[in-house]
Computed example of a mutant assay.
Amino acid sequence: MPTPNPAAMEFLLTRRSRPAKTLSGPTPDRADLLPILTAGARTPDHGKLEPWRFIVLEKNAMQRLAKLTAKRGAELNFDEAKIEKSYNQFASANLAIAVVASPKASEKVPRIEQELSAGAVCLSLLNAALASGWGANWLSNWMAFDRDFLTEGLELAEHEYITGYIHIGTETSTPPERPRPDLDAITTWVDV
């Protein structure tokens, strides 16, 4: 018989991301972040390739990336509303962990498995931050894939991109509950 962990199950059944715009300081310091990063690095990783890595973006880096977001948004001819929303993703934030997808050449482990592992890292970081008492949110947006932004702003290699920016801070308001999936509509049971 399995040994249940009711506290962990209750956490998973009630977890709720906090909108990034509602997070403020204080933010976790390096000592607070180490267990969160450690939990993220315990993600399933077929072949032990570590096809991901972390960039911790502190306040000054967030401000620099906000300016780059506005510059690149204008170069890409985005409308003002899109530029402002993208800009604020960094400008109004104090801390984020950029999860870099960094697939490795492998005959054994397909690229898609490595990319799924990087996505799992994002959820692990998000859950670890929430379990540690912080507010957290997983965002991406075009700044996760725009090659010029990634090269200039984060010095990523050509094969790398951002799987997610995990914003972490102090929760300033309780988020409203949102509709959840209808399990009957998304679940098929197969017994043959």
Rank of each mutant, 00 (worst) to 15 (best):
G25E: 14
A101R: 07
E75L: 13
E160I: 10
L123P: 03
E107N: 11
A120Y: 09
E75C: 04
E158M: 04
R147Q: 14
A31E: 11
A93W: 02
P176M: 12
L68V: 11
E113H: 12
P26G: 07
E155L: 11
R180S: 13
G25M: 09
M143H: 03
M9I: 12
N94R: 08
N88D: 12
D29V: 01
H159R: 10
S24E: 08
T69N: 10
A39Y: 00
P4V: 13
I112Q: 14
C122W: 02
P175S: 09
S106W: 10
K82G: 01
P6M: 12
D184T: 07
N5V: 00
L95K: 06
L23G: 06
N88F: 04
D45F: 00
R30M: 02
T14K: 12
N88W: 02
E10Y: 05
M143P: 01
A93E: 02
A74I: 11
T14L: 07
P175E: 06
R42W: 13
D184P: 02
L76S: 00
D184R: 08
I166Y: 02
H46A: 13
A93T: 07
L34I: 00
N60D: 15
T187E: 02
P6K: 11
G133N: 00
D32L: 03
L130P: 03
E160F: 07
S140A: 13
A144L: 07
D148F: 01
A61K: 15
S102G: 08
L76N: 06
D79K: 13
L156S: 09
G47S: 11
